[in-house]
Design a binder for these strands. Sequence first.
DNA 1: GGCTTATTGATACTAGGTATCTATACGCTA
DNA 2: TAGCGTATAGATACCTAGTATCAATAAGCC
Lengths: 147, 147
Amino acid sequence: MPTRVNALAEQLLETLEEQGYRSTSPRRAVAQAIANQDKHFTAEDLREQLPSLGRATIFRSLKLLVETGVVCRVLLEDGDLHYQLSHRGHHHHLLCVECGASQDLLGCDIEAVLKQTSASHGFELSGHWLEVYGRCKSCSSGELAAV
Amino acid sequence: MPTRVNALAEQLLETLEEQGYRSTSPRRAVAQAIANQDKHFTAEDLREQLPSLGRATIFRSLKLLVETGVVCRVLLEDGDLHYQLSHRGHHHHLLCVECGASQDLLGCDIEAVLKQTSASHGFELSGHWLEVYGRCKSCSSGELAAV
DNA sequence: GGCTTATTGATACTAGGTATCTATACGCTA
DNA sequence: TAGCGTATAGATACCTAGTATCAATAAGCC
Ligand SMILES: [Mn+2]
Ligand SMILES: [Mn+2]
Ligand SMILES: [Zn+2]
Ligand SMILES: [Zn+2]
């Protein structure tokens, strides 16, 4: 029986279809599983939640979704690479080192200063990768409450 | 016979000794090999250049050097993780996507703007990871010459 | 030179991901 | 809505980068 998907998962599938990829049962399952995550996740997380799917299929689906921009990679402070639902286009992440929450940073206001810094080194800027680590609002206020 | 090392390699070894690590023959070989690299490298690169050393030894030496800060990790635009000799302390890299050259960016002038952006999201900044991609001076001028 | 302990290298193991290949199922078209 | 060509799935083997284990060795201190 075909996997039922919610609106968010439906969006992921539509993005793939727009690119000419078929909407298959495994892809629906992966899309729904991703839509169900409440924070960044690994391919292994998905695999545990979708034990009936082939491992390669999960990696392949993830790769397509990253390529089309609806899922992005997140570099954790310890070097681990995770995935998460993404705003399309260029953006960064505020990653809470305490609870692991991730918040997208949409406006990229470092581009201007980077351009200038690069230029002063004779370097022609074309892109950058930035991850920001710290403590989210609720983790900061939690500490105050605990004191 | 003990491996002869040059001044740069000697510095790496001294850093380890300061931390209480012994100056062994394999570590001298690794330090010298790192000092010989003219750009960022992988553990596998070192292994090819030091075929007589155990693979684990190379990873262990690299890890120590990264921990003591004299070698740093560099995230290439394609996601590959490389190593390179490092200025100690916080800094970033200008990575040429054409020739692969890497230049250290010592002053971190994005800290201020990041702090402000984070604060506006209720986020308490504690650190960040930034890699900058583009084209180095010689690659940019090379294109002009070729036209 | 001898002793203690850190370190080595062999080996096996892990995580995360890709290549290959046959069987299947999408989805278009008649 | 049956049939068909092609994309895709899943099994499997393989790969890169790294870690755990452990017996043998070598630093370095007295
Ligand atoms: Mn994102
Ligand atoms: Mn560096
Ligand atoms: Zn938090
Ligand atoms: Zn260059």
